[in-house]
């Protein structure tokens, strides 16, 4: 995947792009293996959204902040949290309550034209070509939060497929009003961030649409790496790269040990 050399890592860029879309006072949830998500939430809190509230889904720690990005379930988060909740109580608002969370940020093995999510299997479920980790809270977060972000650290035809092989998180389902017709609350995916660009969903059809491409990325390259037809606006915006101030706060206040550049460099050109 050819990408222009940048002064920031892919993980840093994804964190900055996500953080920009978060608003002050919103409520969010972060899963176990979520370095970019933790960085995005803490970056938003350190800049424009000081009252953003986020909770570790498995561990129950709220707003843990110490300038080091740790796995959200780790006990070390307890000493730097505002509260520690127990999972058997948290399930009320994670698995049942409608719109408690403003947003969640989810990765996937596959996503599709309408932003449905698959982390279960590639191929037939009874005899999969690739057995994934499973659903955990993704079904509830996609189904019940006000919106969700899809964060993909790879953008290729294996990950961006016409229809996911297994729906474990409902996005805009089959497009149009299908999501609310199925009895799900308003919501669904709002943005998709990838190493190539930022994507949203056209309001009527709910089909994925190009919002902006990162510096040096062409629309042909995106089409070559996407397994379905994206909606493309007449004029394609260029993604505003992380600026010096965003990177300064990210590196000096949020990720002081450099977890993001170590774990999420740009994919190598092939």
């Amino acid at each position: 995947m050819p990408v222009v050399p940048q002064s920031f890592a892919m993980g840093e860029m994804l964190a900055v792009l996500l953080a920009r879309d978060m608003a002050d006072g919103e409520k969010a949830i972060v899963g176990t293996n979520s370095d970019i998500q933790v960085a995005a939430c803490n970056l938003a809190r350190a800049r424009h959204a000081p009252h953003l509230w986020w909770v570790s889904g498995p561990g129950g720690m709220t707003n843990p902040t110490e300038g080091i990005i740790r796995p959200a379930a780790d006990a070390e988060n307890i000493a730097v949290a505002q509260a520690v909740m127990d999972l058997p109580l948290m399930i009320d608002f994670i698995d049942w309550q409608i719109h408690f969370f403003d947003f969640a940020i989810l990765g996937a093995l596959q996503t599709d034209r309408f932003g449905n999510i698959n982390t279960v299997c590639v191929g037939d479920h009874a005899k999969p070509r690739l057995r994934g980790p499973g659903t955990v809270g993704i079904s509830a977060l996609c189904g019940l939060s006000k919106r969700f972000y899809i964060m993909m650290t790879r953008h290729d035809r294996g990950a961006f497929v016409p229809k996911v092989d297994f729906v474990c998180g409902a996005g805009h389902m089959t497009g149009g009003s299908s999501r609310t017709d199925a009895g799900l609350p308003e919501g669904g995916p709002s943005l998709v961030v990838t190493p190539l660009g930022v994507f949203d969903f056209e309001p009527a059809s709910k089909a994925m649409r190009v919002r902006s491409l990162h510096e040096g990325v062409t629309i042909d390259e995106v089409r070559d790496n996407t397994g379905f037809d994206l909606l493309v606006p007449d004029k394609i915006e260029s993604t505003l790269a992380p600026d010096a101030e965003e990177l300064f706060v990210l590196r000096r206040a949020v990720d002081t040990t450099g977890v993001l550049p170590a774990k999420f460099p740009w994919p190598k050109a092939n």
Binding site: H125, T135, C142, F166, V167, A170, G183, L184
Partner: peptide, 10 residues
């Protein structure tokens, strides 16, 4: 809640 997934199918 029925969250619109494929879980009931499999």
């Amino acid at each position: 809640p029925d969250l619109g997934t494929d879980l009931p199918k499999v």
